[in-house]
Structure formats: C-alpha cells, structure tokens
Design a protein around this nucleic acid. Structure first.
Lengths: 201, 201
DNA sequence: CAAACCGCATGACAATCGTCACCCCGAAGT
DNA sequence: ACTTCGGGGTGACGATTGTCATGCGGTTTG
C-alpha cells in the first residue's frame, strides 16, 4: 500500500512542483493539497493522510500552528516541515509540536521522499544543519544587546540608537562590541546578519 | 521537437520539484539544472537551451545578473524569472535585461509550462500583479554601486569589498558615498536597507 | 580634433566605529 | 558589614567610514 500524503504550501507553483516531485515515487500518493493551514487542517481530518508535508510561513495559520493543532486533536498523521529557514528557534517549536521531520528547501530533492518514508516508518528526519545547532547554539545575546543590534542592523548610528534607548552613546558602543565579540563578527552589520539568520533578533 | 529548458534555482528541493513538474509535460525537456547563476551561465552557453527558467535570489550571481549576462553575449535563450518577490524594481530590471517572462511563485502551477510555451513561441508573460506597477520609481543606482552596496549590506568592510571586486578601497568608498547620497541615506547600512526594500539589490 | 564623459584612483580630513581599561552604584549573598 | 555582580557610564586610541576635490586614461560626440 502506498503512503498517502497531504501537502500544505502557500506558493501554488511550489505546491504543484512538490506534488509533481512526489508523484514520481510509486510508493507515495499525494491525496490532497492546501495553500494554508486551515484548509490543511480540515483536509487532514477528513482524509487521514499518513504523512503531512507543510511549509512554515503561510497566511492565516502557520505550519507550526497547524502541526500543533493536529497534535492537540490526537491525530496520527506524522508531520514533516519543509522550510527555507534554518532557524533553530523554529526547529525547537516544531519538535515541541511533535513534528517528525524538518527539512530545508535547499536539501537535495530526493530527501523529501526519503523523509516521508522514514517518518512513515516511525523514524525522524531532521536537517543536519540544524540537528546539532538546536543544541549548542543557544542565543548568547542579552536583552540590551539584542535591542541595540537590531537598530544597528537597520542602519541607525550609535548616537541615534542611544537616543532611542535612553542610553549613552558609549554604552551603546560597548553593547555592540560585546555582541560583535559573542557572534564572532567583524562589525555591527555582520553581527546583525548572523543574529538575524539564527533567528535571534 | 520538444522545448529544451534549463532551470536555475538555489534551493535544491525546489529545483528538483520544478524539474519534476516540467517533466510531466511531454513537449518540455529539462536539459540542465543549476543552483547558482555562474553554473547556469556556463551550462546555458554549452547546451543552448531554448528557454531558461531562473529564480532571482541566488548566491553569487542573481537571476537578474544572469539574465543580463546572457543578453550581453547575444544569447538566443529566452529567460523566464520565477520569484517570490513582487517588487516592481525587480521586474523593471528584468525587462531591461531582456527577460521574456516574470512569474510569481504563488501563481498556479500550470502557468509555468504555459509561460515556457508562450515565451518559446516568442511571446511574453508577465505576472498580472506586476504588469501595471512596473513604472514606479526608477532605480538610481548603477551597476557598480549595486554590487558594492550589496556587499556592504552583508557586513563586509570597504577593504574586503575592494578585494572581491578588484577595485581600490578608495573607489569602493566613493561608490558607497554616491549610493548613500542617491538614496538619501545616512550610511551604507541604511542605504542597503532602502535599496533592498525597493527591490534594487 | 577637441570637448565632454565615464570608470577608476588618490589623498586628505572629519566623523563614526570598535576596543579596552576602569569607574559608579544599587541589589544580592553570606 | 563586606564582598560580589550586573547594568550603565567615561575616556582614550586606533581603525574604518563618509566626503570631497582632483587626476588620468579611454570612449563617445559635436
């Protein structure tokens, strides 16, 4: 018997493409498609697919909320998240929602079918870039550093940041220096980029 | 004879999925895939595909630069841009680069094959959301300013940018100063932010 | 042909940034 | 009461950034 799959993804073109990709596998059957979390939830309840593949960023209900909702209702479907974002924070929330797979969109194409099979068998499949990162890379920034870094990343000068946060300019520079050091960056811009990319801003 | 197509898209999973989607059409043949602009350029030169489908945001060389490079070399291939971003600035630059199609990733899946056929026939296909909005505000940046600004926005220092682009550091600073002035920004970071948001990077 | 541009480079100067050592003070611990 | 600690601050110094005037070899173009 083939594995029944539901796909949720808000960009129709990508949705169609993913479906086409999976249609090529004889042991996988795409039984439904949804372009947002709410539709996906209804369809999942009605069709009881073996596996659900979902994006995170969708209008209305995100993939994470969707996974959580499925879990609440004691649903058997195993969920695989497919997303652009390698943010440890997302992975955390996904695992908390009982998600069994977390793939990045820049993983090789065969991995999706693999992941579906693995997860259907009861296994887990986490993008290697994140498997470790979820553990070791905790956000090293404190509150002030985050605030300052966020503004610096928008292009505000130290003096302006100081004004906005009611700090002295020197202090702002100290925080920035700290943040730059903690993130292993060479300057505020790079630091902001790194932090954003990790989902810490 | 079927239409030969090259696909460039940095997210492998999506790349594979798009290829699968097109494989389903009997009159379309995916002859090559690339995950960045440079590879795409080489492959396009070697294989002379009828149509090139490319994403915009790719590491190294963007889809727009790629399209431009193809045009420079007097290449016959017709280019279709497929992107998430409905930024008028992108469309304008795409059209300037001689691009024949501009689709959004949330267009219906069948549109891609349609667009390929239309473009192959010599027609154009522009996402309706953008067809009108194209004449918004002009991009005041020239090529060098764009390159320099992009790197500056990533957090590279002037000296590093100079090394990467084989320019002197002073020249890099001059270009940045120009760009900052044109965009009404106060520093490189703000300038990069403004340009990005307008779709000029 | 000469004028006008263009892309790139220099050099200089002021402003801003990044770093570091050290200070102040109010809360906690013990 | 005496330390310790954390948030915030100061001052100074070198590196980087932003600005501007100026120069120089190629292309256009009148």
């Amino acid at each position: 018997m083939s594995i029944s799959v539901l796909i949720a993804e808000d960009q129709s073109l990508i949705l169609g493409a993913l479906a086409a990709l999976l249609e090529m596998e004889q042991d996988i059957k795409v039984v439904a498609r949804a372009t947002n979390g709410k539709d996906a939830l209804q369809l999942a309840e009605k069709l009881q697919p073996d596996v659900v593949v979902t994006d995170i960023e969708m209008p209305g209900m995100t993939g994470l909320e969707f996974a959580d909702a499925l879990k609440q209702r004691g649903h058997a479907a195993r969920v695989i998240i497919v997303t652009t974002f390698a943010r440890p924070g997302y992975l955390r929330r996904a695992l908390d929602a009982g998600v069994r797979g977390y793939l990045l969109k820049d993983a090789p194409a065969e991995q999706l079918a693999d992941a579906i099979r693995t997860v259907h068998r009861g296994g887990k499949m986490i993008a290697p870039e994140l498997a470790t990162a979820a553990w070791d890379s905790e956000d090293p920034l404190n509150d002030r550093e985050r605030q300052v870094l966020r503004l610096a990343g928008e292009g505000f000068a130290s003096a302006e940041i100081a004004r906005q946060l009611f700090l002295s300019e020197g202090t702002v520079r100290n925080y920035l220096s700290e943040a730059i050091g903690k993130l292993g960056a060479n300057n505020r811009v790079e630091a902001a980029r790194i932090a954003r990319q990790k989902g810490w801003l």
